[in-house]
Amino acid sequence: MTDPQVAADQAVIEVEHLGIEFYRSRRRRLSLREMVLKGRNTSPTETFWALDDITFDVGPGEAVGLVGSNGGGKSTLLKVIAGVLIPDSGQASVNGGVAPLIELTGGFLGELSARENVYLTAGLHGLSKEDVDARFDDIVAFAGPQVKAGLDMPFRHFSSGMQVRLGFSLITTLDEPIILVDEVLAVGDAAFREQCYGRMESLLAQGRTLFLVSHSEKDLQRFCTRGLYLRSGKLVGDGAMDEILKDYRADNAATP
């Protein structure tokens, strides 16, 4: 069940001194044979802070764009807000349900059919089978005829475009007040992107909160009034979207 509506003066997302620490290289468990021969795991243990002392609030109905170069921490921040990652320092409090589309597959399971994934994911967001039954035709119609034709095949056989179509259609059909979108719309064709843009505008008109990661300045300016600028894991800008994009462009122009 979707969380109760948040009061107009209460932040829906509160991030305080947030930090996420990662290992620079992948670590693995040693097999029994390796432990006998080597005695210990000799994998490098050097770490870095993917997010470092991040603090900001987001109010109900805000449309916020995350700006920054690849590796700056944008996707990591969205995963923390979505509850996928647990902070190593600080905290992120979310006062309301979250509908995340933060990876290409939408979190769907590859071995399940598209139909099964729709019911499973919607159920995890509190919708009953009867609720999903009532919305199912609309979800499939938005996703398009190719998705409809493949509803009962394993999701892993879908093309990347079909995966995005189904993921976006389902996530934006949920009743959650907070929508997280991470670059995935770049995969779809132009006609479907326009269809998605119309859906996003409708959600914003309903008072939903949007968190959008995109390298498209056009998209950020179209949907977002506020921007957050992440650089090397640090929040270096928080202000009007146009001003944040201006700062980002200036930094890129100054970089050799």
Rank of each mutant, 00 (worst) to 15 (best):
V118F: 02
Q195C: 11
E103G: 11
P44N: 12
E111N: 14
F223M: 05
L18M: 07
A191T: 12
Y23D: 06
H157V: 13
V36H: 03
D182I: 05
L212K: 06
A134S: 13
D247R: 14
R135S: 09
R208Y: 10
G123F: 09
F155E: 08
L220G: 00
G83A: 10
A149R: 14
I179K: 07
S43A: 15
G68A: 10
K246Y: 05
V58R: 05
G227T: 07
S214P: 00
T45Q: 13
G207K: 13
N117M: 05
Y23P: 01
Q146S: 15
G71Q: 05
E46I: 10
W49T: 00
A191Y: 07
L120T: 07
G198M: 08
G106P: 03
P60T: 03
E111S: 14
R27N: 08
E130S: 15
K218I: 11
Y23R: 12
T105Y: 01
S113A: 04
P60F: 08
I102F: 06
Y197C: 05
H215G: 08
F211Q: 05
F56L: 09
L180Y: 01
G71K: 06
F142L: 14
E46M: 09
I179N: 01
P177E: 13
L230E: 02
L112H: 04
D189F: 09
V213G: 00
G19V: 11
D238I: 10
V187L: 12
D52T: 01
M153V: 15
F168R: 06
S93V: 13
S214R: 08
D247C: 11
R24Y: 07
G96K: 10
N252W: 03
R28H: 14
E243Y: 01
A92H: 00
S214K: 05
G96F: 05
L127M: 14
